[in-house]
């Protein structure tokens, strides 16, 4: 997907703007605005991850850690030290960037998917730290009392206000990422995905680009974590466990690795599944996720974003059969 048309983005933005109004009209989906806040928060992570996985061809199974770093830095610094929430967000993103560079640089220089294993181990280590450093994080019980967000006296204290705040950031990240994909950087990333030796023969600094994308995705995940902490006012480690990292993977695989639209679709679907539609399954939702992931990997390698192409090909074959 070389060109990303402007029209769909405009339509999507319009949909996001009117959605809370629609949800208010229909009682059955009255709580959907609240869920959409989480969709937005997770979209921030998956937009970055889709750039990493779909365009740079690297798997991370540890992004829950960066999400958690953002959430805990925001949570601890605002709730315990009373610091400015926006400043904490920037601190969180900076820390995430530095950590990502430290973890990513050595493993991304290696061939293959060492990043998958390094991030997996890293994610679990960070999860253990959240659990063990009780003095700061509150341990497994979590920490509460994280203040909401406000700017110049304007409080983001209702679901709808927070919705517009989060989605404003999502759209900004989306447009920025789309611009990256369409720039020379995007071409370099696709070249890396297609063939690393070829890309490097063409003068692309492969490991530098991969590290950059990894850091970018970590920064977005940290930002999402800060929004999460300020929205719920409470965090505990189980939000940031290995399974969340896998869930992010499912969102992206379901939507389609090579499409940033796919990432958003997948995030929306999986979030609604876990917050609303799969509540009856309770603990066993994990089986549903596993089946979805396997189904997509085996039958829809391009995810939902690849469905139109499959349908088109199917029609074409049918038409040519009839002739």
């Amino acid at each position: 997907m070389l060109r990303i048309a402007k029209l769909p983005i405009a339509i999507f933005a319009l949909f996001i703007i009117v959605f809370p109004w629609i949800a208010r009209q229909i009682p059955a989906i009255g709580n959907y605005t609240d869920i959409m806040v989480f969709v937005g928060i997770y979209c921030l992570i998956t937009i970055g991850l889709s750039l990493l996985m779909g365009y740079a061809g690297q798997i991370s199974i540890g992004h829950a850690a960066f999400f958690g770093i953002g959430a805990y830095i925001s949570g601890v610094l605002t709730a315990k030290y009373g610091m400015n929430a926006w400043a904490c967000m920037v601190i969180g993103m900076t820390v995430a960037a530095v950590v990502a560079a430290l973890v990513g640089a050595p493993s991304l220089k290696l061939k293959g998917h060492y990043l998958a294993m390094a991030t997996l181990a890293f994610g679990i280590i960070v999860f253990i730290i959240f659990n063990e450093e009780i003095e700061w994080t509150g341990g497994p019980d979590g920490m509460s009392g994280i203040p909401g967000l406000s700017i110049f006296g304007f409080e983001f204290d209702s679901v709808e206000r927070y919705y517009y705040l989060v989605w404003g950031f999502v759209l900004a990240a989306f447009v920025f990422t789309v611009n990256v994909i369409q720039s020379g950087t995007g071409r370099a990333l696709r070249a890396i995905h297609a063939s690393e030796p070829a890309a490097s023969a063409m003068g692309v600094n492969v490991s530098r680009f991969k590290i950059l994308v990894f850091v970018y995705s970590a920064v977005l995940a940290s930002l999402a974590g800060s929004f999460y902490a300020h929205y719920l006012n409470f965090i505990n480690p189980s939000t940031f466990d290995l399974f969340f990292s896998i869930k992010l993977l499912i969102m992206i695989a379901l939507g389609g690795m090579h499409s940033i639209w796919g990432a958003i679709m997948g995030t929306g679907l999986i979030t609604f599944l876990s917050y609303e539609w799969l509540r009856y399954f309770e603990e066993f939702e994990i089986i549903v996720y596993g089946v979805i992931l396997l189904f997509v990997t085996v039958l829809l390698p391009d995810g939902l974003a690849g469905v139109p192409k499959i349908v088109k090909g199917w029609f074409r074959r049918k038409v040519s059969d009839e002739r």
Partner: peptide, 25 residues
């Protein structure tokens, strides 16, 4: 898996592992 790459195989085995875990629980 039709086009087995390291990438899809990793994801497939992750899927298998969470299915097994879910069944076990």
């Amino acid at each position: 898996i039709r086009h087995p790459s390291v990438f899809t195989l990793i994801i497939a085995t992750i899927a298998v592992s969470i299915i097994i875990k879910g069944m076990a629980s």
